[in-house]
Computed example of a mutant assay.
Amino acid sequence: MTRFRPCIDLHDGKVKQIVGGTLRDGGAGPTENFVSEKPSGWFAESFRQNHLTGGHIIKLGPGNDEAAREALTAWPGGMQLGGGIHADNAAEWIKAGASHVIVTSVLFDKEGRFLPEQLAALVKAVGKDRLVIDLSCRRTERGWTVAMNRWQTLTDLDVTVETLDRLAPYCDEFLIHAADVEGLCRGIDGGLVEFLGNWGEIPVTYAGGAASFADVAKVDALGQGKVDVTVGSALDLFGGKGVRYADLIAWNRR
């Protein structure tokens, strides 16, 4: 059964909802759908009170460590942590309260070539059961291609059955944002969800584009109940109007 997985996206030390494709180095800042006046710990405490496990905290760039630690302190062992994770600091974040660490960019060189030795180092540092591989991707002529560096750089790794089979023995879960629809509230990438559900060998969380509760139900149907879902900008908790937080809590309690 598809579960709702909560999220806390941190940018410049604040909880925000951002249109994913607008994150860039330098120049104008990203397009922001929501900037909270409440601290990260407030959101994590709400997730704890409502028994929402397996969510993720993502640090989008520098200046977010303090807010990340606050959230992990509020819900110790209840959330995963990603953003700037590597073999030398992964265990530190587990000690700080993360159930898992989430990695993408560290698994590639600057040109986007996959580095299996980096994955091996992370497994050695925290163990596969504490590791989530983020295969967030963009649509390309090859299908879906993993994008790193805040989704700015395409890699040499495509989201295929072969890729999932290759990486699954080295992690506990996959997290996959559909970067082209992330934050737009115009609907999910149904083809990607269906592909992930057809694979379905280990837990997978999909994020990107959910605009209504019907989209949550669509993830459940297309993913055959094997794909969990994150709702961001459309959620009333983050200023959205498409999905009620209370409805997602009730969904998880079915």
Score class of each variant (00 low, 15 high):
residue 133 I to Y: 04
residue 194 E to Y: 02
residue 191 G to F: 02
residue 105 S to C: 10
residue 144 W to V: 02
residue 101 V to H: 05
residue 163 T to V: 13
residue 97 G to E: 03
residue 116 P to E: 07
residue 209 G to A: 13
residue 80 Q to G: 14
residue 170 Y to R: 13
residue 125 A to I: 08
residue 144 W to K: 11
residue 87 A to P: 01
residue 108 F to D: 12
residue 93 W to C: 10
residue 129 D to E: 15
residue 150 R to A: 01
residue 203 P to M: 13
residue 174 F to G: 03
residue 168 A to H: 12
residue 178 A to P: 03
residue 191 G to K: 12
residue 145 T to M: 08
residue 93 W to N: 02
residue 97 G to T: 02
residue 213 F to T: 07
residue 113 R to S: 10
residue 165 D to L: 10
residue 195 F to W: 06
residue 186 R to Q: 15
residue 173 E to M: 12
residue 164 L to M: 05
residue 191 G to E: 15
residue 78 G to Y: 00
residue 207 A to L: 01
residue 137 C to T: 05
residue 159 V to H: 07
residue 210 A to H: 10
residue 207 A to M: 13
residue 152 Q to L: 01
residue 177 H to F: 06
residue 204 V to M: 04
residue 188 I to Q: 03
residue 139 R to M: 14
residue 178 A to L: 03
residue 203 P to L: 13
residue 83 G to R: 05
residue 103 V to G: 11
residue 162 E to Q: 12
residue 143 G to W: 12
residue 198 N to Q: 15
residue 188 I to D: 04
residue 83 G to P: 00
residue 109 D to M: 07
residue 135 L to C: 10
residue 120 A to H: 06
residue 151 W to P: 08
residue 157 L to R: 10
residue 100 H to I: 09
residue 183 G to Q: 01
residue 193 V to I: 10
residue 88 D to E: 14
residue 187 G to D: 03
residue 134 D to M: 05
residue 139 R to V: 11
residue 200 G to K: 11
residue 184 L to E: 12
residue 205 T to V: 15
residue 152 Q to H: 03
residue 114 F to V: 09
residue 154 L to A: 03
residue 169 P to F: 10
residue 110 K to G: 12
residue 136 S to H: 10
residue 161 V to E: 14
residue 211 A to E: 03
residue 95 K to R: 14
residue 105 S to V: 11
residue 164 L to A: 09
residue 111 E to G: 12
residue 125 A to S: 13
residue 117 E to F: 00
residue 107 L to A: 08
residue 127 G to Q: 09
residue 126 V to Q: 02
residue 169 P to N: 13
residue 188 I to R: 08
residue 78 G to A: 01
residue 95 K to G: 08
residue 149 N to T: 10
residue 165 D to P: 06
residue 200 G to W: 06
residue 198 N to E: 15
residue 135 L to T: 07
residue 78 G to C: 03
residue 118 Q to W: 02
residue 134 D to E: 05
residue 210 A to Y: 07
residue 104 T to I: 01
residue 93 W to E: 00
residue 152 Q to I: 07
residue 168 A to M: 05
residue 213 F to G: 11
residue 201 E to T: 15
residue 172 D to F: 14
residue 175 L to R: 02
residue 109 D to F: 15
residue 90 A to G: 13
residue 204 V to Q: 02
residue 89 N to W: 08
residue 181 V to G: 05
residue 189 D to S: 00
residue 183 G to L: 11
residue 84 G to W: 06
residue 198 N to G: 12
residue 116 P to M: 04
residue 132 V to S: 00
residue 78 G to H: 01
residue 207 A to F: 02
residue 76 P to L: 01
residue 108 F to T: 05
residue 165 D to V: 07
residue 115 L to W: 06
residue 79 M to Q: 13
residue 207 A to Q: 04
residue 162 E to Y: 08
residue 125 A to W: 07
residue 139 R to K: 06
residue 200 G to M: 09
residue 141 E to S: 13
residue 175 L to V: 13
residue 92 E to T: 11
residue 163 T to S: 11
residue 123 V to M: 11
residue 107 L to G: 03
residue 86 H to D: 11
residue 115 L to R: 12
residue 112 G to N: 04
residue 84 G to P: 04
residue 94 I to R: 09
residue 199 W to S: 09
residue 75 W to M: 14
residue 84 G to A: 07
residue 142 R to S: 11
